Simulated scan of single mutants.
Amino acid sequence: MTPSTARRKETSRRAILTAAFELVQEVGYAKLSIEGIAARAGVGKQTIYRWWPSKGAILLEAFLILSEGAEGAPPTLPDTGDLEADLIAVLRATVEELNDPRLESPMRALAIEITHDADLAAAYAERLDGPLREAKRRRLRSAQEAGQLAGDLDLDVAMDMIWGPVLNRWLYRSGPLTTDYADRVVTTALNGLRR
């Protein structure tokens, strides 16, 4: 592949991802179509289908690339030695991201679509959720090794206890998602998880 061909392909790919990300915010996921994405991106539908099997797959990649800037280094969580402060900072950032109007529609669409599409769920687990869970696990393991958490604590369950309530409240709109709520989740979870 010549450098100009590679550049054209990358330009088309970025245009498709940008179009999908913008359109899902404008029209919602139910009305998002491959035809609409192709028209907005200035490419043919066949170009899109050559690279992605579904609009959900496009949206996942768009979310990964455009919301974070680029795929690259694995995610990390702060490790200042103060577990509670670190978790509060992370959950507050999570609340801000979930409440960001630019990201809310794509994230809600992905949350719904992965329940229906096993391949998309696997891609989501591998490319987004898996690396995030590993970063969370590393931070909790560090606290465990420092004696801040019980040595026999199941870290996977602990992650679900800390992040689950925030995601659940956001997904089901079961109450206001605020930084105060995030702070209370951390305090409540750690009161039950400490030695």
Rank of each mutant, 00 (worst) to 15 (best):
M1W: 13
M1N: 15
T2Q: 12
S4C: 07
A6M: 08
A6K: 05
E10K: 04
R13Q: 07
R14H: 11
L17V: 09
T18C: 10
T18D: 12
A20R: 00
F21E: 04
E22W: 01
L23H: 02
V24M: 00
E26D: 06
V27K: 03
K31I: 06
S33A: 05
E35V: 11
G36Q: 06
I37E: 01
A38P: 03
A38R: 00
A39G: 10
R40W: 02
V43W: 02
V43C: 01
V43A: 02
G44K: 02
K45E: 12
Q46E: 08
Q46C: 03
Q46T: 07
T47K: 00
W51Q: 15
G56R: 03
A57D: 08
A57P: 09
I58V: 15
I58H: 04
I58N: 05
L60T: 06
E61C: 07
L64Q: 06
I65Y: 11
E68Y: 13
E68T: 14
E71S: 10
A73S: 09
P75M: 13
T80I: 04
T80H: 01
G81S: 08
D86R: 10
D86W: 10
I88N: 13
L91A: 13
R92V: 12
R92D: 14
V95M: 14
E96S: 08
E96C: 04
E97L: 14
L98W: 07
L98M: 15
D100I: 15
P101I: 09
R102Q: 14
L103C: 13
L103F: 14
P106N: 05
R108I: 05
A109D: 00
A111R: 08
I112T: 10
I114K: 07
T115P: 00
T115V: 04
D119M: 09
D119W: 08
E126P: 11
G130F: 08
G130R: 11
P131C: 07
L132Q: 11
R133Y: 08
R133D: 06
R139I: 10
R139N: 10
R139K: 09
L140M: 09
L140Q: 02
R141D: 06
R141E: 10
S142P: 02
S142M: 02
Q144Y: 01
E145V: 07
A146W: 12
G147C: 00
G147P: 00
Q148I: 06
A150D: 10
L153A: 11
A158L: 01
M161N: 07
I162R: 06
W163L: 10
G164F: 06
G164K: 10
P165I: 01
V166N: 04
L167F: 04
R169S: 03
R169K: 03
L171R: 11
S174F: 02
L177V: 12
T179E: 15
D180H: 11
D180T: 14
Y181E: 08
D183K: 15
R184T: 15
V185L: 05
V185T: 07
T188L: 14
A189M: 06
L190M: 12
L190K: 12
L190W: 11
G192M: 15
R195T: 13
